[in-house]
Design a binder for these strands. Structure first.
Lengths: 193, 193
DNA sequence: TTGATCTCTTGATCTAGATCAAGATTTCTT
DNA sequence: AAGAAATCTTGATCTAGATCAAGAGATCAA
């Protein structure tokens, strides 16, 4: 693993939980690097998610189909985790696609490796708990936004938090993430500028 | 603690993670019983959630205000966990009310007691991770329903999963949980019956 | 038991945002 | 660089569900 990739992993993991040097050494050994071009799938519906990812480069999108319609549930980008958490955690078939929107590089760890590390090291288990809790808090925040906000308010919240995505991915995906039509997103963007 | 309450706790905890007898003994000692009449608050906005609850009796509602409007994010009832997870986990002030809708009884454990048990026992830490993961999976499922479903589809999903709540709490709260107006809920109920 | 206060229901209207349509840009691919 | 494909924009219309209104049932508190 390259040194700068290791640094990204270190920073991300230690921001939740410090690991002792011997545990950290064993921990890092369980991760492998992988790359994908754009428009490639990491996971598709029906598959069980085998990996937890750390994004080193690129932007990815998680989405599912409701009839013809695509429902975007999340974007991921460096430096953060990626994957289909429901499927990874429950080991049930995913209902979601996880797709690269740009060329991407990842580190990944398999479910089995992670389970073994959790068994062997209390502090890895704690890190796992803290990560799950962090995702939970994020989902709760998002739930509230989706339920309570009008299209304009969702747009404003997005612009104040994730404006950088505007330059990186097609707007239609952002519209889908905000549960509105591309036309509505386009009009809000015009009025905002 | 009464024996039947202990049984509810045992069943709930062990459905996620088995604990050895000495750990279980220490674990149960950290819980205390409490009761509340209807329309009482367990938590209000601005307070930091100090407890994780297990519901023994009654129905509770978690909600927040968006302007004048109440946004209901969850109902809890026996036998399950209750509380404001974001605030309990992050120890940030809650944005939510947690209110009893009927006379209620609980077991509760403080943040500090739980933290100590997690420190001392790897398997309690694991239980904590599994609970957080379970909540996460529930939130993800709900997020999808809110984003993808029409009023009629949300109503149908509710009826197939939680119909029993119809007899127990005012329908306006269910409407709020499904992100629709009471009038819309009333019409859907009429057409369904 | 009796008002008083919540809830629920139903009809009439309104509106935010969806849908439809079509041309203008941007971006891929070769 | 050129053509093809995808994306964005704008206007015109439509509709699911919100809002408004008002009477009918429930439920509660004394």
């Amino acid at each position: 693993m390259q040194n700068q990739d290791l640094e990204i992993l270190h920073k991300l993991v230690f921001s939740a939980q410090r690991l002792s040097p011997p545990v950290w050494e064993e921990f890092t050994a369980a991760w492998e690097e992988m790359s994908l071009g754009r428009k490639q799938f990491l996971t598709q519906p029906g598959e069980v998610e085998r990996y937890l990812y750390v994004v080193l480069e690129g932007v990815q999108r998680g989405y599912c189909l409701q009839g013809q319609r695509e429902i975007t549930v999340a974007f991921t980008y460096a430096p953060s985790y990626s994957g289909i958490p429901e499927s990874f955690l429950s080991q049930q078939p995913s209902a979601y696609f996880l797709e690269t929107l740009t060329d991407s590089r990842f580190l990944r760890i398999s479910r089995e490796s992670l389970a073994r590390l959790c068994d062997r090291h209390h502090m890895v288990e704690r890190w796992g708990r803290l990560i799950a809790e962090g995702v939970l808090v994020g989902l709760a925040t998002r739930q509230r936004e989706i339920m309570a906000f009008s299209a304009g308010e969702k747009f404003a919240a997005f612009m104040s938090r994730s404006r950088h995505l505007l330059q990186q991915i097609p707007h239609k995906y952002i519209a889908s993430y905000l549960a509105m039509q591309p036309e509505t997103f386009s009009r809000l963007l015009r009025d905002w500028q």
